[in-house]
């Protein structure tokens, strides 16, 4: 069994072999350049530029790997600004002992994600850390996108609709179930996916409709709403009955005593849109596989300024507080 050893990061032959025979051969030798920097052509002057680091245990899970997560996460960060993602960088920090086969699977899932999102991985770096100094693999990706339309940021007003492109909490639940020995009779997968095509389609059809977008990753949907309403002269109210949540996600959340609204997603965007376009946008979203369960989940309100609320099934209201503690399984 081949594993990562310190020499894979030493700058010598082993490292060159790793880069040419494995990384470049999977991610694409035409795009990944051995030069110190990639030279790129950009069609416009207004660009979006982002970076994010990825750490996750386990590194492979139903619906993705840390590799596809890194590509999709960076693509989505660009897409929710309204930019078209073009180029991605990829820095790998490998822990000594990582199996080469595992690394291969992760690289393949990166390449597949990049192809699907139509982005090119153009530059990269590889470092090796001693056994025990890392969690198998860390990935940092930076991304560049271009604005063909103005950034999708407009004045949010009471009456605007809150939309999500599908079911809530799938990714975080998949991971937590793995860590807590919970299994599924029919299976549950991470929603890890690139959203740039779906978002682009909405902008193309309704160029003036979107007031704000954010991918609901760590901290979940509730955290996005808290961010939007912070210090604002409006509030946000979700309707509990309208939330698209899979039974499996509800089940895990109940068993572990956590709230799906705070669970991470990796393929969900929360959109605040002008309510005149709500139905049309839902229609557009539903044309995409990543949007088939799209739903209107709430509204921007003139009540509860600066806060996010949820209207429960029985018609009561409660606040959606800012997430404070990491969600741990609890007995009470």
């Amino acid at each position: 069994m081949d594993i990562i050893v310190p020499a894979h990061g030493s700058g010598g032959k082993l490292m060159n072999d790793l880069i040419t025979n494995l990384i470049q051969s999977i991610l694409g030798s035409d795009s990944i350049q051995l030069d110190d920097a990639a030279s790129l052509n950009l069609p416009t002057q207004a660009i979006a530029f982002t970076t994010d680091s990825y750490t996750i245990t386990p590194i492979e899970f139903s619906g993705g790997t840390i590799g596809s997560l890194a590509i999709n996460g960076t693509v989505n960060d660009l897409a929710v600004m309204g930019a078209t993602p073009l180029y991605i960088s990829c820095a790998l920090i490998l822990e000594e002992g990582l199996e080469i086969e595992t690394l291969k699977r992760i690289l393949v899932s990166m390449k597949e994600a990049a192809l699907k999102a139509n982005v090119a991985i153009v530059t990269g770096d590889t470092k090796v850390v001693p056994k025990g100094k890392g969690d198998s693999i860390y990935i940092n990706t930076a991304g560049i996108g271009v604005f063909t339309t103005p950034p999708q940021r407009r004045q949010i007003n009471p009456g605007d609709s809150i939309i999500i492109n599908g079911t809530i909490g799938d990714h975080g639940t998949t991971i937590m179930a793995l860590r807590n020995n919970l299994t599924f009779s029919k299976g549950l997968s991470s929603d890890c996916a690139a959203l740039n095509h779906l978002i682009h389609d909405v902008i193309r059809n309704y160029p003036e409709a979107i007031k704000f977008m954010r991918d609901a990753t760590r901290g979940g949907v509730a955290s996005v709403l808290n961010e939007i309403t912070k210090n604002a002269s409006f509030g946000a109210t979700l309707i509990e009955e309208n939330l698209p949540i899979k039974d499996e996600v509800r089940g895990v959340a109940e068993i572990l005593g956590i709230d799906p609204l705070y669970i991470a997603n990796e393929g969900k965007v929360v959109m605040i849109v002008d309510s005149r376009y709500t139905d049309g946008i839902i229609h557009v979203l539903k044309q995409h596989p990543e949007g088939k369960d799209a739903a209107v989940i709430g509204q921007i309100t003139d009540q509860f300024h600066g806060k996010a609320y949820i209207e429960t099934k029985i018609g009561g209201k409660r606040i959606l507080p800012v997430l404070i503690e990491e969600q741990l399984p609890r007995i009470c």
């Binding site: 429960t312 099934k313 029985i314 018609g315 009561g316 209201k317 409660r318 009470c332």
Partner: peptide, 15 residues
């Protein structure tokens, strides 16, 4: 204590 939280969470206290 679970009742304390649930009275809030379900909105029953609100009605």
């Amino acid at each position: 204590g679970t009742h304390t939280t649930e009275f809030f969470r379900t909105g029953v206290k609100d009605i």
